[in-house]
Amino acid sequence: MDLGLTDRIAVITGGSIGIGLGVARAFAREGANVLIAARDRERLDQAAAAISRDFGVEAVGHACDVATAEGCASLVAAAREVFGGADILVNNAGTGSNETILEAPDEKWQAYWDLHVMAAVRLARGFAPMMQARGGGAILNNASICATQPLWYEPIYNVTKAALVMLSKNMANEFIPLGIRVNAISPGLIRTPDWVKTATQLTGADKAEEYLQSVADEHAPIKRFGSVEELADFFVFLCSDRASYSVGATYFVDGGMLRTI
Results as ranks from 00 to 15, higher is better:
Ala50Pro: 09
Lys223Pro: 00
Glu229Trp: 00
Tyr157Gln: 01
Asn98Glu: 08
Gly204Leu: 12
Gly22Ser: 04
Ser168Thr: 11
Asp87Ala: 11
Arg134Phe: 07
Ala63Ser: 15
Ser227Gly: 12
Ala208Asp: 01
Arg43His: 13
Gly204Glu: 14
Ala47Met: 09
Val34Ile: 10
Ala73Asn: 12
Ala50Thr: 06
Ser186Tyr: 01
Gln213Lys: 15
Val253Cys: 11
Ile51Met: 06
Ser186Gln: 03
Ile51Pro: 04
Ile139Thr: 07
Asp45Ala: 13
Gly20His: 07
Asp106Thr: 13
Lys161Met: 00
Thr68Gln: 07
Phe235Asp: 00
Ala205Ser: 14
Ser74Trp: 05
Val57Pro: 10
Gly96Val: 11
Val90Gln: 00
Thr100Arg: 12
Val82Asn: 00
Phe127Ala: 12
Cys64Ala: 15
Ser227Asn: 03
Gly136Asn: 11
His219Gln: 11
Ala119Pro: 01
Ala73His: 10
Thr95Ser: 12
Trp109Ala: 03
Gly31Ala: 14
Glu42Tyr: 10
Met118Tyr: 13
Asp241Ser: 13
Ala38Cys: 13
Gly4Gln: 03
Ala162His: 11
Phe237Ser: 00
Ala232Val: 02
Lys223Leu: 09
Cys239Ala: 13
Glu218Asp: 12
Asp40Ala: 12
Asp40Pro: 06
Gly31Thr: 12
Gly20Thr: 00
Arg259Ser: 06
Arg125Gln: 12
Ser214Thr: 14
Phe225Thr: 00
Val236Cys: 04
Pro187Glu: 02
Met166Trp: 10
Ser74Cys: 02
Ala49Arg: 14
Glu103Asp: 15
Gly85Ser: 06
Leu202Thr: 05
Gln110Arg: 10
Gly137Asp: 08
Asn33Leu: 05
Pro177Asp: 08
Glu154Ile: 10
Ala163Gly: 09
Ala232Met: 07
Leu178Val: 12
Val215Ala: 04
Leu140Ser: 01
Val253Ala: 14
Gly18Cys: 11
Ile145Arg: 10
Arg181His: 06
Ala111Met: 03
Tyr245Ala: 07
Met166Phe: 04
Asn142Thr: 14
Val23Ser: 00
Ile185Pro: 00
Leu102Lys: 09
Thr260Phe: 14
Val82Thr: 11
Phe83Glu: 02
Asn141Lys: 03
Glu58Ala: 09
Ala67Phe: 07
Lys161His: 09
Trp195Phe: 09
Val57Met: 09
Thr203Asp: 08
Asp106Ser: 05
Arg80Lys: 12
Ala208Phe: 06
Tyr211Thr: 06
Thr95Trp: 11
Ala37Ile: 15
Asn91Leu: 10
Ala143Tyr: 03
Gly18Ala: 06
Leu238Asn: 11
Glu174Val: 07
Phe252Gln: 02
Ala26Gly: 09
Leu44Val: 07
